[in-house]
């Protein structure tokens, strides 16, 4: 195992409001890291700094040996290898499902149109939506949209995928299908960082669970350590609340 992401003393402020207060984190190749914590603790912001959708205020992020502070690093190239799945799916509304999946590989010259279509149909089959190739995103359910979004990300053949609360906007009966797809990805060895409130998924799939609160990493460890024997009082309090509803 080698380090896929190394984060050192990462800080992010909006004006005088500091959201990330000096985070350190290393994620290994093939590792599945699940981040939990109360709303507003900075989980999503942290995730979004890793592919520079948010510009960090200070600190260092190294992805695959590329220091993102280095002006010579081509961020577009780095992003090709870091997939991202959003809470609100963000499917391109002007394109069909198939075109959503094909857009970036074709635009970035990775494959020609025919190869892209073959690839897209294969990926849609993997997420159980092969019959939706020509559908418009507006006609899909939330769960279907999210699975298309995952297929779209996979089309770039990323080394790792960031999941930003992928099931939070879904109706409960849709959650299972999406988690199933994520579970399969984890099994295949995809490196994943998942911000989620699905504690069951965290217990089952995570190699490591990180608890964040107030812009700090409060505690991290194997799922059974965190869930069965949390050390930090904030972790205890949080788990008490979410597990005993």
């Amino acid at each position: 195992m080698s380090a896929k992401i190394e984060v050192k003393q990462l800080r992010k402020s909006y004006g005088s409001n500091e959201v990330l207060k000096g985070l350190d984190l290393t994620v290994q190749d093939n590792e599945v890291v699940v981040m939990i914590g109360p709303s507003g603790s900075g989980k999503s912001t942290f995730l979004r700094t890793l592919n520079k959708l948010e510009e960090p205020t200070s600190g260092q992020i190294v992805v695959d040996g590329h220091d993102l502070n280095d002006p010579k690093v081509n961020m577009n190239k780095v992003r090709e290898k870091i997939g991202m799945v959003f809470q609100h799916f963000n499917l391109f509304n002007n394109l069909t499902v198939g075109e959503n999946v094909m857009l970036s590989p074709v635009q970035l010259g990775k494959v020609n149109k025919q190869e892209a279509e073959f690839l897209a149909r294969g990926l849609l089959k993997e997420v159980g939506l092969e019959d939706k190739f020509d559908a418009k995103p507006q006609s899909l359910s939330g769960g279907q949209k999210q699975r298309v979004a995952i297929a779209r990300t996979l089309a770039m053949k990323p080394d790792m995928i960031l999941f930003d609360e992928p099931t939070s906007a879904l109706d409960p009966e849709m959650v299972g299908d999406v988690l199933e797809v994520m579970r399969n990805l984890a099994k295949e060895g995809m490196t994943m960082i998942v911000v989620t409130h699905e504690m069951g998924f965290a217990k089952e799939v995570a190699d490591r669970v990180i608890f964040m609160a107030d812009g700090h990493i409060m505690e991290e460890g194997k799922p059974e350590e965190i869930f069965n024997n949390p050390q930090n009082p904030r972790t205890k309090e949080f788990l008490n609340k979410v597990l005993n509803v």
């Binding site: 190239k77 090709e80 391109f92 857009l103 970036s104 970035l108 779209r152």
Partner: peptide, 24 residues
């Protein structure tokens, strides 16, 4: 979110603008 999704896939700003944002 449309621009963010496009950029997260590695599309440069101009391409994201032309293929995703402007048509909408």
């Amino acid at each position: 979110g449309q621009m963010e999704a496009a950029r997260s896939l590695g599309l440069p700003y101009g391409k994201a603008m032309r293929r995703v944002i402007l048509p909408q």
